[in-house]
Design a binder for these strands. Structure first.
Length: 490
DNA sequence: TCCAAAATAT
DNA sequence: GATATTTTGG
């Protein structure tokens, strides 16, 4: 899938599928080649299994799928199948003249994704791309939850843009979500047979992607910003103007809401003093962040921040609208946050502070920076360990809490939780963990008064000079029905 | 079922 | 390009 030429292609997904056909019979090779080309696939033929294997070994990234005959003089088709499965893990379709059950079974047992009988029909060849797609989906599913990436995260049932194939490629794997198995297994044949009916990819606005978006917006200037300009600046393959427009709409709504709140003058306290960098910086073991949640209730708070200098806080103080985020705005520079933690909410996080000022000041675009909460559940690897960054805000008042000042919303005593502070600017990560129930109860009692308690966990924090870039808080109670991925503006 | 995110329509 | 509406998926 890492075909270099892929990036230059513009055809719809199955078009250009790179197929390697192996058959000792030159006539069949010719026929198959012709038929496959008719399907708009990119075909490579090979008369010897050994040569095919060699070719694959040399350029395994140059093929998407292999179709091999079973009976070949130099090497049994099953043997080839075995090698391919083990060495390059490409989908392999076997074919033969006879459809003897045992042979077909053998093929399947050896890992063939399909078994075609000669003469092969056009319809069968036209659909082989599904195997590639399914395989990818399968792989994605396996790594789901452990992948982090700074590009687009896409979920699709198919791909309608060649470029998208990059999202599937090993080197540039983007987190791809798939539907639940049941969904496509049931109607796979119908749904997949026509690429045109395949659903469009859904872009998941991860923190990183959102950050790019925010950076672009800032660069352009809020008043002059437009989807097209942002798209150009972001320069993310596969991302469309519509994607950006949609996100921009959400972003604007978010800022508007924030501004409103700000005007309303609800200040939830003086976060500044409470949330100084000292509390945030420090080195903690980030590994703890990897265990997101087990069956029980566990809460975890992670956040990364860069240059934390909070000054203002835009949080909703209204009890009725508590979904929210807490964002602090930093004067001079940067961020802060508050968050609400719902028990039902699985993850809460405030993240990456953007660089826009969600206030009038920002609108004026004076280059001020602000903290911007983002929400997403995204997986990332930090030091080989998956870390999730969350940014979803809870919606229950009773659960809300501000990291800065209101800790009453922290997880209930009966829950196990972890708190971690994670410095994302590159390397350092801080994590704070409390795993005992006792700790929990302590947290649940968190109130401003408990500042000390919190400090104790963050004592190693470095000075303000340390910059924090993202702050995310995640609370995992084990049960939740909220969407937990993507950036959320709330 | 509900809700928010993202896609799509206007 | 902005906004309204619909679709999607957790």
């Amino acid at each position: 899938m890492a075909n270099p030429s892929a990036s230059t292609r513009t055809e719809a997904f199955p078009v250009g599928l790179r197929v390697l056909v192996v058959d000792d019979d030159p006539t069949w090779l010719k026929i198959l080649e012709k038929m496959l080309r008719k399907c708009s696939y990119e075909v490579t033929t090979c008369g010897l299994a050994r040569d095919a294997l060699e070719m694959l070994r040399e350029r395994k990234d140059h093929f998407d799928i292999v179709i091999s005959d079973v009976n070949m003089p130099d090497m049994d088709g099953f043997k080839l199948l075995e090698h391919v499965g083990l060495e390059m893990d490409l989908p392999v379709i076997m074919m033969s003249i006879d459809g003897e059950t045992s042979r077909v079974m053998k093929g399947v047992q050896h890992g063939a994704c399909d078994y075609l009988l000669k003469p092969v029909r056009m319809k069968e060849l036209r659909n082989i791309w599904q195997h590639v797609y399914r395989k990818k989906m399968h792989e994605v599913k396996e790594i789901e939850g452990h992948y982090i990436n700074e590009n687009i995260q896409i979920m699709k049932n198919g791909s309608d843009d060649f470029e998208d194939r990059h999202l599937f490629s090993g080197a540039d794997i983007n987190y791809v979500r798939k539907r639940k198995d049941g969904d496509n297994q049931e109607h796979s044949d119908q749904e997949f047979s026509d690429p045109a009916t395949v659903k469009k990819a859904r872009v998941i606005w991860s923190v990183d992607l959102h950050q790019k978006f925010v950076n672009a917006v800032n660069q352009i200037g809020f008043d002059k910003v437009g989807p097209k300009k942002i798209l150009d600046l972001m320069n993310v393959p596969g991302l469309t103007r519509e994607n950006v427009a949609s996100h921009l709409q959400k972003y604007r709504l978010y800022l508007r809401r924030l501004q409103k709140q700000n005007e309303g003058g609800t200040f939830s306290g003086n976060m500044h003093s409470d949330f100084s960098c000292e509390d945030v910086t420090g080195n903690f073991d980030m590994h703890s962040s990897t265990q997101m949640q087990q069956n029980g209730a566990s809460s975890k708070y992670t956040f990364t921040a860069q240059k934390i200098q909070a000054q203002e806080m835009f949080s909703d103080a209204r009890a009725d609208d508590f979904k929210s985020i807490s964002s602090l705005q930093v004067t001079g520079s940067k961020q802060a946050l508050v968050c609400d933690i719902p028990d039902s909410q699985k993850v809460i996080s405030v993240s990456r502070l953007g660089v826009l000022l969600p206030s009038k000041d920002m609108m004026l675009g004076a280059g001020k920076k602000s903290l911007e909460p983002a929400i997403s559940r995204q997986q990332s690897w930090s030091g080989g360990i998956p870390v999730m960054q969350f940014m979803q805000y809870p919606k229950h008042d009773h659960e809300r809490c501000s990291l800065l000042e209101d800790y009453s919303c922290l997880p209930k005593p009966d829950q196990e939780h972890q708190v971690l502070y994670h410095l994302d600017t590159p390397p350092s990560v801080i994590s704070l963990t409390c795993n005992t129930e006792n700790d929990m109860s302590g947290l649940s009692e968190f109130k401003p008064v408990h500042t000390n308690h919190r400090s104790s966990h963050t004592k190693t924090a470095s000075p303000l000079s340390c910059m924090t870039d993202t702050l995310s808080v995640q609370v995992d109670s084990g049960s939740s029905n909220t969407q937990d991925y993507g950036v959320a503006f709330e």
